[in-house]
Amino acid sequence: MNLIEFSDIRKVYTIGSITIDALAGVSFGIGEHEFVAIMGPSGSGKSTLMHILGCLDTPTSGAYRLEDHDVSKLRSNDLARIRNRDIGFVFQSYNLLSQLSALENVLLPCTYSTHAMSGRNERARARELLERIGLKDRMSNRPVEMSGGEQQRVAIARALMMDPPVILADEPTGNLNSKGAREIIDIMKELHAGGKTIIYVTHDDTIGAQAERVIRIQDGRVVADDRN
């Protein structure tokens, strides 16, 4: 049984009288512990695909099964629970809250958890995550006081906070230099080795080549699905 099962997912945007098929029927399955890169030129629909995978958006039609539950028909509260518990999302532009410290940003998902740990355990876990990715001395820094690579590592720690089975990353290295990008890829490889399912979007071939499987999207369709 696949962890993620996309069957004939379509996403249609209507702007005035024009309709745009961002996704024109996408089907694939991703198993547990896979390490997948989704690649495609800009405008190919890979971001839309990522948003639907991350339950940030809903498909116009088609079925999306996550851990054998059909999530394409869930209501907003249930989708919020899935985003909180089952998926860790990493964005290209980090998306940290600027008014919070690194530690507080990592703790943010706990605020919205329905079965919370104790405050002390939460903080201990957040510290441990930040230490693991080499930000032991940056915990009380605000995002503006950190480099892009550091910010993205905080974002990864935040994605790991609720220990979700799936990590989704939308162009995680897009704003980083090659050293920073390499660090992020290394962390993702490590997480994969630790048992997480990793799916990331990139348009950079060298970054894409690091994955075990590459799904190529063009004009809203899957055009290639290769295993390295």
């Binding site: 991350g54 919020a80 629970r81 998902p109 919205y112």
Partner: peptide, 16 residues
Amino acid sequence: TREIGIRKALGARERD
């Protein structure tokens, strides 16, 4: 708006 989006992405419900 962006902060709201981030909070929602991390699991904030409408009520939160």
